[in-house]
Design a protein around this nucleic acid. Structure first.
Lengths: 243, 243
DNA sequence: GTCTTCATGTCGGAT
DNA sequence: ATCCGACGTGAAGAC
């Protein structure tokens, strides 16, 4: 058994308890595999009958209950929760809770097949490209991508309805509100843009024309309809130049 | 080693390869712990420098890369992906890919501390309460919760702008459009309701009054403003009766 | 804390 | 396959 690596095959309750507590003390990430029931009560409530699952306990208080399928855990607790392990009626039990909002998750193992604890301190930062931020920078670097003569004046400009992605001016001196989306958009993005435009129409001097431009790779038909109804515009752009 | 439970402490590339391939063959869920780099290219692109992490391979093709903190994996692939493991330059490598959209994830291990494979076939269904569906049922069971004399006529009624949660009539014969939210709502929910109301105003006979009612536990100030501007209403209700 | 919006959102249901 | 909206959405940044 290596330093900062604990494992136990088919541990009984006490063994598992020792491992989880040691894990907690040393700030290790813990994985538990076995047959368990799960009860959750908080923002909603859920019950999960017995089944074989993988349970992950992270040093930051996160709890994940994973089944054989799906990217999302079937049950979970967010970071910042505190958990205690115990042996109750011969069953190994993990209780995780938080206040604000009040939430509790209880995982009760009928049978534990395996338990491990690892040190997973991770210094690296994820470098991600292709985000909305990249799309914004692409337009700021070359405003002509939006339209000839477009001049950005501000990003994240505040309005009563929220912050506008890019606020600028066209060649005729009209105000241009730009809403950016990194992927194909539907009706929600059009409504969002519309909120900003309406807020600015109210705020600015009467007589100022405010154009709203949605920038995204593409839009759905419904979104196109909505854009037309509200006199809003669309410009097709992706976060990264096409290759 | 129990049936359908494979483990390996500090496996070399070949051992890990055998375990992952056996895991795949038998439909097991596989966990890998070690120091790795991760490269992702697809809808976006990301690079992650070496760090100690937990990698989960599910039998449905899901891949999760978890660090010490956070509920979300730092990298992942969705269900339906296919992955191959290999030893390259002495390193154990997992490549996962899918088409439509074209995406690839490569996890390259400098060092593998532990590997396991479990059978996690899970027959149980999650029983969840406190959802929007519960809120809908609560109102259908007792329409007076919305307002005296409210009469539901349909759920999921289609409009050009999408399906209305509850479509009904008030005591004056006006059309009532109800949008339900299980939790406190912001501007987006107001816009959504507004889209349905506008679509129905266009669709129905001129002269028909269409009321829009947002039902949720509470609303933000901005949402209240928006509701007022658009002549929409708010009724406070939670998915479950208060206890 | 609350509010707002982004996300490689994911997921499910309907067309 | 696309579209649409819910989700115990989570996570980040602003206030």
């Amino acid at each position: 058994m290596t330093e900062n690596l604990l494992t136990a095959v088919a541990p009984d309750g006490e063994e598992a308890l020792a491992l989880v507590e040691a894990s907690e003390e040393r700030g290790l990430l813990c994985t538990l595999f076995g047959r368990c029931r799960v009860v959750y009560d908080g923002r909603a409530s859920s019950r999960l009958d017995p089944g074989d699952r993988l349970v992950v306990l992270k040093p930051d208080g996160t709890v994940l209950v994973h089944t054989d399928g799906g990217q999302q855990p079937v049950n979970w607790q967010p970071p910042g929760c505190t958990h205690e392990a115990a042996v109750e009626d011969g069953e190994f039990v993990v209780r995780s809770h938080r206040s604000s909002p009040s939430e509790e998750l209880v995982v009760r193992f009928e049978r534990l097949r395996h338990a491990t604890a690892y040190d997973v301190t991770d210094p690296a930062e994820l470098a991600l490209t292709g985000t909305e931020e990249d799309l914004r920078q692409r337009i700021l670097d070359d405003p002509e991508l939006l339209e000839p003569g477009f001049e950005p004046r501000a990003t994240e400009r505040e309005t009563p309805a929220g912050a506008v992605d890019i606020y600028g001016e066209d060649t005729d001196g009209n105000v241009v509100v730009v809403e950016l989306k990194r992927r194909r958009v539907g009706p929600d993005a059009v409504s969002q843009l519309n909120r900003y435009v309406e807020a600015l129409v109210r705020d600015l001097h009467a007589g100022t024309t405010v154009r709203g431009v949605l920038v995204a790779p593409s839009v759905t038909d419904t979104a196109t309809q909505l854009l037309a109804e509200r006199d809003l515009e669309f410009v097709s752009l992706t976060p990264a130049p096409d290759t």
